[in-house]
Simulated assay, not measured.
Amino acid sequence: MHARAVAASTTALLGTTAFLLPLSPARAADGTATAPVVVAHRGASGYAPENTLAAVDKAAALGTAWVENDVQRTKDGELVVVHDDSLQRTTDVEEVFPDRAPWKVKDFTAAEIARLDAGGWFDPAYAGARVPTLEQFVHRVDQHRQKLLLEIKNPELYPGIERDILKVLDNEGWLDRAHVQQRLIVQSFSTDSVRTVHELKPEVKTGFLGTPPVADLPVYAAFADQINPSHSSLTAAYVSAVHGFEGAHGKRLETFTWTVNDAAAARRVAGFGVDGIITNRPDVVRDAVEG
């Protein structure tokens, strides 16, 4: 069955009234073709150490409006920007704290993490780069007038982290009308975490990372604005099915796909009609989809 028909029949079965017929792929409301939004994954992490301020700066230098990051929590409750739940891969923690294996983020204080080199592993030119706090990260993004796709990483390890993140964003001015409407999306692989953000701050745009079955999309549409799958799992039919539903804010569900780093893959998913492409190499993807 065609994906649109599947979406329609699924919606009817589940009793939702949020179904909308999608536009054709890569078409705006006025019928003109639009290129997908390009998002710098962990900053421009193909060119600078991931999730560092240097990666944000590189994304800005490449003219990339959107930056993605990962947020976790330290032993003493500080929010830091790092992808893995261990500090081992992207810092010199083994050298600085050799007796603290397996070097989990949650087992270190913010002051201890601030001592670590988070750049030398990537390139000696970046030696001395630090793991930024969430406050430092959003401040740098704001300096560049960029937009933020924030991922809540491993929320099961950090009970209550959603409320903590929203508090920091509020304190840093990121929950005002301008940021919430145009410059902020919060996403996670955890359904519960995305739902919690929506319940705590309904005006914040949210995304679910993954590829839920079409039959489950009405459930996700109640608390999410985006369904964000891996590009390897993506098809044009799935994108069309996602676009067939309204999200939590009454607009068409969007699809941001990850992590696309070459021109051919970028053109392929753009042809599916995705709304955004998350990439380590934003210049490569931008040139592919806009050129």
Rank of each mutant, 00 (worst) to 15 (best):
H2K: 08
R4K: 07
S9R: 11
T10P: 00
T11D: 10
T11K: 00
A12N: 01
G15Q: 06
T16F: 05
A18Q: 11
P22L: 08
P22A: 09
R27F: 01
A28I: 00
A29I: 00
G31W: 08
G31H: 06
G31K: 06
A35G: 06
P36I: 09
P36K: 06
V37Q: 12
V38R: 02
V38C: 03
V39T: 12
H41E: 12
S45E: 12
Y47V: 02
Y47W: 14
P49D: 12
P49N: 12
E50Q: 15
T52W: 03
L53F: 08
L53H: 07
A55C: 07
V56H: 07
V56I: 15
A59P: 01
W66L: 06
V67Q: 10
N69R: 05
D70I: 03
D70A: 04
Q72M: 11
D76R: 01
E78T: 15
L79M: 10
V80N: 05
V81Q: 09
V81D: 11
D85H: 11
Q88D: 14
T90M: 13
E94W: 03
E95F: 07
V96Q: 14
V96L: 13
F97H: 07
D99Q: 14
P102L: 10
P102H: 11
P102I: 02
W103Q: 10
W103E: 10
V105C: 08
T109P: 02
A111P: 00
A111L: 05
D117T: 09
F122T: 09
Y126F: 15
G128E: 12
R130G: 08
R130I: 09
V131R: 08
V131K: 06
T133Q: 09
L134M: 08
E135P: 01
F137D: 14
L149F: 13
L150D: 10
I152G: 01
Y158W: 10
Y158D: 04
P159S: 02
I161S: 00
D164Y: 03
D164N: 07
D164P: 01
D164W: 03
I165K: 02
I165W: 05
L166R: 03
E172S: 11
E172D: 14
D176N: 15
D176L: 03
D176F: 06
D176R: 01
A178P: 01
Q181K: 14
Q182W: 09
R183N: 13
L184N: 04
V186R: 02
V186Q: 06
Q187G: 03
S188E: 07
D192H: 02
V194C: 09
R195A: 14
L200F: 07
E203L: 04
V204C: 09
G207A: 10
F208G: 00
G210E: 07
G210Q: 05
T211W: 12
P212N: 07
P213L: 12
P213V: 01
L217R: 07
P218N: 13
Y220K: 04
A222W: 08
N228E: 13
Y238V: 05
S240Q: 14
A241R: 03
A241Y: 05
F245G: 05
E246F: 00
E246A: 13
K251G: 10
K251R: 15
T255K: 07
T257F: 10
T259R: 08
T259Q: 03
A266D: 11
A270V: 00
V274L: 05
G276H: 05
I278N: 11
T279E: 12
N280T: 04
V285L: 04
R286P: 00
A288L: 01
A288H: 02
